[in-house]
């Protein structure tokens, strides 16, 4: 099963790499949004999917990453791609501070607190916190990224930048899922008391899940800031967090193939049904409700992992 998954990813990303040849600028740009949201949803999947913590404020970390990039790029002229690690670290530090007092909350209680968190961040940005965020207008004039002297400006350039980062995320998080760290998160989702009783430092792993997920979302914020060149608080409202939450739950929480499918459905389908204008959200909402009734585990739920025991049996 593991090999089949890898083969699937290789075929998927290879096919995807060819699609810009067939699509116009508009659709390439849609795919760029899908890619960005895929990376964000994969980082949310660490917190919501594996560790099972109901976190509906992921846009806050995304915003902090984007604003960190925007501020250090426009004020200090540091190239945007150099700002990538700084944005990740800033979002991680923020997560470390805000998540620490709330991670012991369960289920819906955590959900409400995280909604509060994302709203506080948005309002703080509107109020021009520290005099650096530009208030409701946001920050403009963020420069384009440059790789070995090549300036990335066109949607098609961004397509390869974003999807390279998305493929890298899929690769690393698949490895993470099948490791001591990933397993520890899944144990605490299944039964926190049993996990602690088996010797897992549950509080630390919950915090680590938040810090890692936030850091990744922060780096995604860099990509967003440089793609748009203008960012404002409205790009990081509550609805963004809800959409990310939906991608993970709809696709299959804790399942990377599920999150990929979810990102295409949640971000791509509304574009396909643009003609229906406002009715598309109605249809979308109905589809979600039906989904939750008939298939609550998601479209492509996580499957139990098979371990290769042959090498071990030979030795013993």
């Amino acid at each position: 099963m593991k090999n089949a998954n890898w083969l699937g990813y290789i075929v998927f990303f290879a096919l995807l790499a060819a699609t810009p040849l067939l699509l116009d600028r508009y659709w390439v740009d849609v795919l760029n949004s899908v890619g960005l949201y895929l990376i964000l949803a994969l980082s949310l999947n660490i917190i919501l999917g594996y560790a099972g913590m109901f976190h509906m404020g992921h846009a806050a970390f995304y915003a902090i990453g984007a604003y960190t990039t925007a501020i250090i790029n426009t004020r200090y002229g540091i190239p945007v791609l150099w700002a990538l690690p700084a944005s990740g670290i800033a979002a991680s530090l923020f997560a470390l501070i805000v998540a620490r007092p709330i991670i012991h909350l369960r289920g819906d209680y955590l959900l409400i607190v995280t909604i509060g968190m994302v709203e506080i961040v948005r309002i703080a940005l509107i109020n021009d916190v520290f005099g650096m965020t530009g208030g409701a207008n946001g920050i403009f004039g963020i420069s384009r990224p440059e790789i070995f002297g090549f300036r990335i400006t066109q949607p098609i350039h961004f397509f390869y930048l974003i999807w390279f980062f998305a493929a890298l995320t899929v690769l690393l998080f698949s490895l993470l899922e099948n490791s001591r760290f990933g397993r520890a998160l899944k144990y605490l989702k299944e039964d926190e008391v049993a996990a602690e009783g088996s010797g897992i430092h549950t509080a630390r792993y919950k915090l680590a899940a938040f810090v890692l997920g936030a850091g990744w979302a922060g780096m995604c914020g860099t990509l967003f800031a440089t793609k748009m060149t203008i960012i404002s608080p409205e790009s990081f409202n509550f609805w963004e967090s809800v959409q990310l939450f939906m991608i993970v739950i709809l696709g299959g929480s804790g399942s990377i193939p599920g999150v990929i499918l979810g990102a295409f459905l949640v971000m791509g389908l509304p574009e396909l049904f643009r003609d229906f204008a406002n009715a598309r959200l109605l249809i979308f909402g109905l589809a979600l409700m039906v989904m939750m009734i008939v298939r609550p585990q998601g479209l492509l739920p996580a499957r139990p992992r098979k371990y290769n025991l042959d090498s071990i049996r030979e030795l013993s």
Binding site: E190, D191, V193, A194, K306, Y307
Partner: peptide, 9 residues
């Protein structure tokens, strides 16, 4: 208190 949806291993 097992991890019900995970394998025995």
């Amino acid at each position: 208190r097992l991890f019900q949806n995970m394998t025995v291993l």
